[in-house]
Design a protein around this nucleic acid. Structure first.
Lengths: 261, 261
DNA sequence: CGCAGTATTGAAATTTCTCAAGCCGAGTGG
DNA sequence: CCACTCGGCTTGAGAAATTTCAATACTGCG
């Protein structure tokens, strides 16, 4: 019985601890508060919605595996992807304080999520400021990513724009320990990339072709392989500051830059 | 001696109370905590920067008068405006938890701001969860506005895009009590609008021309006049949900919709 | 093998950008 | 009082980028 309920939910606590730890310094009390959260888990199929624009959820989602996406649905029915989320991300903590969803959340591939009742979070945050600050901070990093996406989609030319998105995804996956060799999962087709970047499918295809031709990346079957990180970063004008990932540059797991080959 | 230090700083407290009250329910203790903040104020000239990308501020800004803007500076030197802020807004609370600024903050016209030491905020938030939640929520609304801008700049055609920005500015100004007749201040030229919308100056000019020709708005000398709110909203596909402004529809100061004339 | 979804490519249609010129109103100094 | 300047607005027109349309591959899977 793989992924028995117990082990999955402890994985959720693990991820919560990791995420909170990335966003602040936790005291033992804070950690035990997290461990005390009563979480449910849920499995999702590709394309499945978790919450929809207009919903008023009473739980917060944390990604355990797979990739989730936030998106807006326009009057026209058109879809605009807003952000992408991997293990450890909490794509809708904001629903704790903003009751109505202004966007939807779906799974891009098969995914598992943990669900934490708002009630539990509210109580824990009221009691333990450090915890509150950590989760607040994580939403602030989200916001920084939105800002970056706004600039990316508004001010960068198509190839650069695509390259920047790929940099971001790869860099974040790397931080979450989700890369192997120079590859990570990126379960989106070119249509969806277009809906994220504000470009047509055809433009995405052509931009990708260029990046591929220059030997920077390879993207196929939902797997992104970075062939020349240094140059990709250069082309994209990618500066990861806005991700607010402590890079502990010297001597640790994170040795991204300067690994062009 | 107009705008004596005392009256200006009490105006800051007033705005803080208003903003916090909009984002949560405050107890008397919370209110007195706010009133106890030791704030400084500062006057700014048009175009002047308050904080820059890369800075590590130790105070948070609240707008007292005038308009501020956040912006990114790209590698190329190009500028991308991210958001616009009016009285009561706190455009950089995030710096409390994200130490390094990923963007800059400047005044668009002459403006006054209040400065609240991070230290004071941190202490108050640690002690009073309701206060913390209120300010957290205000940053979440910010984030919702970023998402909306992302979608606007990525998925909407030029005229619609401009219309949407105008709707947002007008609606927010209205909520802050900064409209007179059907007008509010919008101290930006067409170049700057372009840098906000990801459009060239020429495109902005042509989009504006269309809106004007259709009798929807008039924008000149930094004053935006909304001539036909209903149709403007329609053209823009503007749905203010994402602003999370309690609209207390029946019988209050906010009677925006259905006032097409 | 054949289908369905996805990727790729060409080429016309459209939008947007760039370049360039002219206009307009406010402020300045002769 | 007027000529001049400066910033910002407006407009035309060719250049460039992007989108749209359409046809053709490719790939994993039943």
């Amino acid at each position: 019985m793989p992924n028995a309920p117990h082990s999955l939910s402890s994985r959720v606590h693990q991820l919560l601890l990791w995420k909170a730890g990335q966003n602040g310094t936790l005291l033992p009390d804070d950690e035990s508060a997290i461990r005390a959260f009563r979480v449910r888990t849920q499995a999702l199929g590709p394309g499945e919605d978790i919450v929809r624009q207009g919903d008023r959820p009473d739980v917060a989602v944390i990604v355990v595996s797979g990739m989730l996406a936030r998106y807006h649905t326009l009057e026209s029915g058109e879809r605009q992807y807003i952000s992408f989320h991997i293990a450890g991300d909490m794509p809708d903590v904001q629903s704790l304080l903003l009751t109505v969803m202004d966007h939807s959340l779906c799974a891009l591939d098969t995914a598992e999520v943990g669900l934490i009742p708002h009630q539990e979070l509210r109580e824990a945050f009221s009691r333990q400021p450090a915890l509150c600050f950590a989760f607040w901070r994580s939403t602030l990093v989200d916001a920084a990513i939105f800002r970056s996406a706004l600039t990316n989609n508004s001010a960068r030319a198509s190839t650069t724009r695509l390259a920047h998105l790929l940099c971001e995804q790869y860099y974040r996956a790397r931080d979450a320990g989700l890369t192997q060799d120079q590859s990570c999962s990126l379960p989106m087709n070119q249509t969806e990339l277009g809906q994220a970047l504000g470009m047509s499918l055809v433009s995405v295809n052509r931009a990708l072709k260029k990046l591929r031709a220059d030997g920077l990346v390879d993207l196929r079957g939902g797997i992104l392989s970075v062939l020349d990180w240094r140059r990709l970063q250069q082309v994209a004008g990618f500066d990861p500051t806005y991700l607010y990932i402590a890079d502990e540059s010297e001597g640790s797991r994170l040795r991204l830059s300067g690994r062009g080959e």
